[in-house]
Write a protein that binds this DNA or RNA. Structure first.
Lengths: 246, 246
DNA sequence: GGTCTGATCTTGGTCAGACCAGTATGATAA
DNA sequence: TTATCATACTGGTCTGACCAAGATCAGACC
């Protein structure tokens, strides 16, 4: 059997990992299933328990499996946290990747809003409306304001009813949260940004309500572009063109 | 120090993982660095070696470090394979996620082509031209044709010069490769699709050359939409009205 | 008879020490 | 100075053991 040969050919960790991988991919191990105990797995595959634990731990960080203390190991549904971890580490080692991640976020969100225009239901509309209102209410608070902004954009993605888009967006949005907040801090100093924030989001909302993908996409893109412009000016210290003072 | 408290508060695996995570995120451990040996790490953190190995293995599957036999553990640059693994597992357990992943791919690629219009250089143009030509040459071969198609789209993303987009696209494109190929198999049976494939890709190429983001995005979107349409018809077994379009 | 309680089995979590097989290095011999 | 070889590493793995706490089931109690 090639399966057995493969299991014998690889050693230790790889053997166990491959063994479980096959079951997972083949579908014989589905979410909710309990794996056999570590000891059984060890004797079954002819390896030691520490090795088995390595493999299980590997699957754990991949979000495939969950090790429950004194209960057993169960298969879980793939989770966002993996991507989160990945992007976190990736970003830490390449700070210049931040703009890059932002691009990816724009990509996801623009696609999401198109889908949202087609698939959003009443509940989605209501959530969008709520979060939009929240943006108006919290316009003067840095933290709450940033949160509201985040929630609004997340609602858009949720309304797309696309799990993959939601997952990807969620994993990146976390990293970009502080960027949201830093933008919000600018708002405090420069009231003229308020109109930008409120009006822009409202226009986006209206486009979704109108179920107009093209307009929604374009409006959202413009929204991001303007946000970029603000940040660019902030770097140069040239924020006066919006109001006065400095 | 909270750092020490955290290290003491958590146990075993978490302790080691958190310890390394901090160094990685703080930047005191950069790609290329060699970690101290497993034994040292174990005594340093007051845990056993198997536990250290669990943590190292976890970082390995996350693509953060690489364990080299009899050499040591070195920090690597985050790799695509993690996302690949994740999507593979995720897809295996939720087959209906395929269309969803396709949506994400469209999202990434449309954003990428916009960036490509701005940032592509001569080399990118040349690669696009080569892959475009390849599509024409291999139009009658299922395998080679699918590969050429894949390469063309990949070239677009590469031309965006965005690492994140490239990584995401790469991790999803693999899963969708066979979908490409199955489409190609249809080509064999229905020659009228040839014009669609060749002309569409050429139009996309021209839009990039013209450095027109809007047109490129729109053309690419249409390309995907038509592809969807073809697949839809294939399901219904109604592939004759190809040149009609909508 | 039904319910509660507790001993026992099992599970994950961890440790200590050991052996192997190669690598890297430095000391010794040519 | 160079070439060779012993030794001190490294990761890779195994064995066997202990702990704490959930799971289970038998026996005691109501």
């Amino acid at each position: 059997m090639e399966l057995k040969r493969a299991a014998e050919g690889e050693k230790g960790f790889e053997k166990v990992f491959a063994f479980l991988r096959e079951r997972l991919l083949a579908g014989s191990l589905k979410p909710g299933d309990r794996l056999i105990s570590e000891r059984e797995l060890a004797t079954l595959l002819g390896v030691s328990r520490p090795i088995v634990r390595e493999a299980l731990r590997a699957l754990t960080v991949l979000g495939i499996v969950e090790i429950r203390d004194r209960i057993g190991t169960v298969v879980t549904r793939p989770d966002v946290s993996v991507l989160n971890d990945f992007f976190t580490f990736a970003l830490a080692q390449q700070a210049d990747m931040l703009d890059d991640v932002m691009q990816a976020r724009v990509a996801i969100e623009c696609q999401a809003i198109r889908l949202a225009c087609e698939r959003a239901n009443i509940a989605d509309f209501e959530r969008l409306q709520r979060t939009l209102a929240k943006i108006g209410e919290t316009i003067d608070e840095a933290d709450a304001g940033g949160m509201a902004d985040f929630e609004f954009h997340r609602s858009i993605v949720t309304a797309s009813h696309s799990e993959t888009l939601t997952v990807l967006h969620g994993s990146m949005a976390g990293l970009l949260t502080h960027s949201h907040r830093s933008r919000r801090e600018l708002v405090q100093a420069f009231p003229s940004m308020k109109t930008y924030l409120i009006d822009d989001h409202r226009r986006i909302f209206e486009a979704v309500i109108a179920r107009d993908p093209e307009r929604a996409d374009a409006t959202l893109r413009k929204h991001f572009a303007i946000g970029d412009e603000f940040r660019r000016r902030a770097v140069v210290g040239d924020l006066d063109k919006t109001s006065a003072s400095r």
